[in-house]
Design a protein around this nucleic acid. Structure first.
Lengths: 344, 344
DNA sequence: GCGCGTTATGACAGCGCTGTCAGAGTTAAA
DNA sequence: TTTAACTCTGACAGCGCTGTCATAACGCGC
């Protein structure tokens, strides 16, 4: 194992000062063509790689972004993380995950410690981690952050969102077009009082269904346990749907994982999807294509969302005013939804 | 945002030298009780957090472990990553993911660059990333590493494995006990010449089935495309199984993801799982409980495996001799396997 | 020829911490 | 009593890099 090559080795080899090497490495201006060439040659001859720790210390930069999530085993986390790692790597940054399973005080302390130690150049806050407590810690430590699909108050900070309400409307129209008239919509349980994005979108979806011609009494509510695991939530929702008389012909599960476990429960009770029950998810996770039947869902463009988030973090607004990026949702029709049989 | 608290602030406040603070922070011996108390008090009074960059630079340590994978969207990657992050965080380390989707030369270069820059204290090499090229880069950069479930030559370096052959035997016995006599086993395609762990275990499994009383001609082979995505591999395997006459009553898919997509294809062709076909996976991924029916599979203890790997990295062998940890596999029986109907 | 702005370069301090070493005090063994 | 070993502490250099600043060289207009 050869000894470490440092900037001064390169400087000596190229016949310039360390600072000039530093300028070339960092793409600063005011270096003559000739010296740039010499430095580049020396770098590749010696196999020089700047030491991140030294760079961080000297420049007071960490070259690291953070990703704050509460459950790393969620499908959407994986999507964010995968593209996050790629995007960071392209920019010479690293991405570190901070997991906060319970979002409790002890974890807040751990987060604060970690934020102070690493000094992230920015962090991405996933939807479920987007709580007042977390934002307080971020602000107290002066950490720049972007919220992903914030439920509340997207204008409060930099944020990246998708057109949730539009996505829900696409679902409404799709189900209506297939002939569904008795449709189950989720209601967040325990109830969320605030007028958050999801409740608002659900309200619009219901209105849309009524406008299309559904009867008020046929748009029924089923509980979506948002504090439980998605699997549990799916089972609970499935039971609620299957107990209803008359039974809805379609249900909007609002998350692919929930939809998946709902579908499984339906099969286990002898209910055929989509013949007896159409199910729609949301997100277009991998899981949407793995369950049987593959799920009709609303695609969330995670790659684009992550790219937008990284962009916001890396290029902070000149004036410091919060910026919000909103991306479209699109409906992906697969086999978990079908026409209502005539003899319904 | 208050100015950064450094070690010298703490030293001043506690009336000791910076070095003594450093000793307390790093749990070194030879510090009197009184000074320890004073330093701790000063630390919490000022909210001091050591700066990682400075520590790294001074101590020539990175406080970072790496995780080398080729596909971050694999289920088993997620399991490793999740417990890896937790374990590192408990030890005051960070975990950074290096993704090498193609394992090609360009990526090897990126990896080498990254290894030299970050100077990982150790990296975990996942099974699919465990290639000669990767190991070469690791050795060239003098990076300590642990291989997870190596296919070849576990004694070559530190490694953590599971009892694969034992797991396969459990599957064989389980299927036989359910009455299955015509069983499809996978064969790695394109063919792998080497006597790797998996081929060896498959050979043992076949022997076990024959010993139990299966007929040679009833233990049939189906292709497992190990270079394709697991979904594709599952579809291909499913087609092969369903085309066979007489059709096997059971198939060992060797991976949960493959099993999942195999099951889905079966359903779509009107083949009922497990009534018409029993399917067994391997790994006990989340996906095993999400598909319908939930998969009978062999659990890989990912948490324990990761813990063992981190342990090996953090406490290097005194003599430098490679150490191998082997953990048991256990069979998890769910609904994707069932008894062979009498009128078969 | 003078002053001014622009371009190009390097000297040097210092980011915040830890390794090394010297030295002082304290105890145990000879 | 002397020697040796162990315990405790701080001074200081320096990890590898970048920010700041001084300096020099080069136009350009007058």
């Amino acid at each position: 194992m050869k000894p470490t090559v440092t900037i001064s080795d390169v400087a000596r080899q190229a016949g310039v000062s360390e600072k000039t090497v530093s300028r070339v490495v960092n793409g600063e201006s005011y270096v003559s063509e000739a010296k740039q060439v010499a430095v580049r040659a020396a770098i590749s001859a010696l196999g020089y790689r700047p030491n991140v720790a030294a760079r961080s210390l000297a420049a007071s930069r960490s070259f690291t972004l953070g990703l704050i999530a509460n459950r790393m085993d969620a499908y959407n986390f994986r999507a964010l993380h995968t593209s996050g790692v790629r995007l960071c790597s392209e920019r010479g940054l690293h991405l570190i995950v901070e997991e906060l399973p319970t979002l409790g005080p002890a974890e807040m302390q751990r987060l604060e410690k970690s934020l102070r130690q690493v000094r992230y150049e920015g962090v991405i806050v996933t939807q479920v981690a987007d709580t007042q407590r977390v934002l307080d810690v971020l602000e107290r430590t002066g950490t720049r952050y972007v919220r992903m699909s914030p439920l509340l108050d997207p204008e409060r900070s930099d944020s990246v969102s998708v057109e949730v309400a539009e996505g829900y409307n696409l679902v409404a129209e799709h189900l209506y077009a297939l002939g569904h008239r008795r449709i189950a919509l989720p209601v967040l349980t325990p109830r969320v009082r605030q007028r958050n994005i999801i409740n608002e979108a659900l309200r619009q979806m219901r209105t849309r269904l009524l406008d299309l011609g559904c009867a008020e009494r046929d748009i029924v509510e089923v509980p979506l346990l948002w504090k439980a695991s998605n699997m549990e939530a799916g089972l609970t929702m499935a039971r609620a749907v299957l107990e209803m008389r008359p039974r809805p012909t379609a249900v909007f599960a609002m998350q692919d994982e929930v939809a998946a476990s709902l579908v499984n429960y339906a099969w286990s009770e002898g209910v055929n999807v989509p013949r007896d029950l159409s199910v729609v998810g949301f997100e277009d996770d991998d899981i949407a294509r793995v369950v049987w039947p593959p799920l009709t869902t609303v695609r969330q463009p995670f790659d684009e969302m992550t790219a937008a988030a990284v962009e916001l973090l890396v290029n902070p607004a000149a004036d410091g005013a919060p910026r919000s990026v909103t991306l479209p949702s699109t409906l992906v029709v697969r086999q978990s939804t079908g026409e209502v049989p005539d003899a319904a």
